[in-house]
Design a protein around this nucleic acid. Sequence first.
DNA 1: ACAAAAGTGTTAGCCGTACACCCATGT
DNA 2: ACATGGGTGTACGGCTAACACTTTTGT
Lengths: 229, 229
Amino acid sequence: MQYEKYHELKRHIAVDCVIFGYEQEQLKLLVFKRAIEPAKGKWSLIGGWVKEEESAEDAARRVLVNLTGLQDVFMEQVQTFSKPDRDPGGNVVTVSFYALVKVEKYSNQLIHEFGAQWINISELPQLIFDHDEMVARALEKLRLKSRYDLIGRQLLPEKFTITSLRNLYNEIFQKQFDPGNFRKKVLSLKVLERQEEKDMSESRKGAFYYKFNDIEEEGFNDPIFKRSF
Amino acid sequence: MQYEKYHELKRHIAVDCVIFGYEQEQLKLLVFKRAIEPAKGKWSLIGGWVKEEESAEDAARRVLVNLTGLQDVFMEQVQTFSKPDRDPGGNVVTVSFYALVKVEKYSNQLIHEFGAQWINISELPQLIFDHDEMVARALEKLRLKSRYDLIGRQLLPEKFTITSLRNLYNEIFQKQFDPGNFRKKVLSLKVLERQEEKDMSESRKGAFYYKFNDIEEEGFNDPIFKRSF
DNA sequence: ACAAAAGTGTTAGCCGTACACCCATGT
DNA sequence: ACATGGGTGTACGGCTAACACTTTTGT
């Protein structure tokens, strides 16, 4: 498990996690300043070794739980990277995952402990090895999912406004959705429930909070958003 | 490389290939009758070990070249399977790929040599281990690709009729596309070139052959087929 | 009264679907 | 002439996109 040693061994299997969060109307990624060699001080994703008695999915979940304490985080496999020379420290095959977490639930203490930081998706520094490509592929996958599912359940707080949800989609697709049309579209999907309470912080009139309802976690057959972005 | 031995060792990395082909207006999969234990006589996908000095992509390509002699086959990573007990013969992490090949180019001799057989996608026997799931996931990925790309370049012969192409889509989505609408749709994409020659075998009138043109291999931004199937 | 965001309504145009209809030709 | 698949035309309906318009309320 010690990084300094692994180059002596033959080939290892690891996971890396592309962790998305949504905070202050921005889509962010949790990145880490490496405390150890190689590439000490450089930015990277968080990862870990896959133990012999677990699957890559188990390992990724373990890494995430260890980092955040959160048990039921949405997570999906993205791609496996296996070029023998992709990690200068040794021959490492890495299965990458992306995760969607509610930033609010994070303990800031944990984050500092790991040298982690939430960074806006459009202001990312260069990451080590092929981690940039992992992020790019994860973002592609997130966009694809967002097109067929109404995501937000895993990223937004329990209660949120339609405007917040729209902003999330604006961030994901780097595009301004029309407020009126977006509202009608998502409400027509019948997965949101309006609450009594209003958010008064953003306007005089106030905006109703919504919650995701419990039924039908599964995606729709048709794309929600059919046009190119 | 010997299967009988690998259970003694700790953990291996392998690839498996979901090889799609199109023959006699049917979407088929190349499956193999295992000649060795475990699961001798059962059907499976073709696979191979990933050598220490190569990537999973390299390994998959090597397996395919070895099997077919074809160099430039379309191939894409699907998913990695890593449950420690997924292969009763040992702890094997497998990266699965799908490939699209022109059946016509295959040497039948090679196929028999490997105990292989083209089987219609809807008549597949049960496959060993988690190979059924690999096929299911590969098919999902193929469907997704077919929705955004006009697929067929890699599956159809050089010259083909619109009806053949439509049949391919019928097979992929298990749905009957409307002949007229399908024709207009694919021709509007401007990626097909009509040939002088006609195929006279299917109708009195004859159907023009088409070829894919050379420009723009990349996909479209919008889904070609937007509705559910 | 005004501003500013929330929310509703309206319209035009595009596109998918269904289906009618013509075409070419071997028997 | 007719049957058959190839190929074209048309009309309806649904949906998207653009944007005008109304609502609410603190200042």
